[in-house]
Amino acid sequence: MNIAGRALVLRGDDVDTDRIMPARFLRSVSFDGLEQHVFEDDRKALAGAGRVHPFDRTENRAATVLLVNRNFGCGSSREHAPQGIVRWGITAIVGESFAEIFFANATALGVPCVTVSADDTQALMRAVETDLATAIEIDVSALEVRAGSIVARASMPASAREAFVSGTWDATALLTADYNVVRRAAARLPYIAGF
């Protein structure tokens, strides 16, 4: 599985899902339209200070890869956060590390989150900031992220990599394939059998 595209650099550690998608946008029974609200409060705050958030830069509008730092997506389990990012147009995320629930949510949406070293993250960010047209290529099979002369070793839990390579990242089909095995496992449990 290969993903290639222009990248958007979002610097900062511990970017939480409340910032990615403030709770007031969870007030809906669907995910429709969430792309409009990604980082809304951060974007407004920066605009108020006369600065431009990476998600507001017109030259970033074509980006499909998101470059982040450490512990991206920490906090709430709200899938609204990756839903918003994906609906905005991002198809893969590269960073130093990811919070676990965010990673699982993104995986379920078919968006790989791959980890590269802090040094490589810096190098990739600098390359993109120097030349926005830099194409980032994420090779999930080979676990490599390439950009111009940079070749970064990437990592990802083996099962997630396998899920992307084999196209089985939507786990529902696997999990519902044979309900009898689930039923048998349940029957073995004392608390389900009634002690």
Binding site: S77, I101, D170, T172, L174, L175, Y179, V182
Partner: peptide, 20 residues
């Protein structure tokens, strides 16, 4: 543990999750 909405769907549909 906490899960997102796609995983809520998985648990509703199969009473199970794909986990590490």
């Amino acid at each position: 543990f906490g899960i997102g909405t796609s995983q809520v769907r998985d648990v509703l549909a199969s009473q199970s999750l794909a986990m590490e």
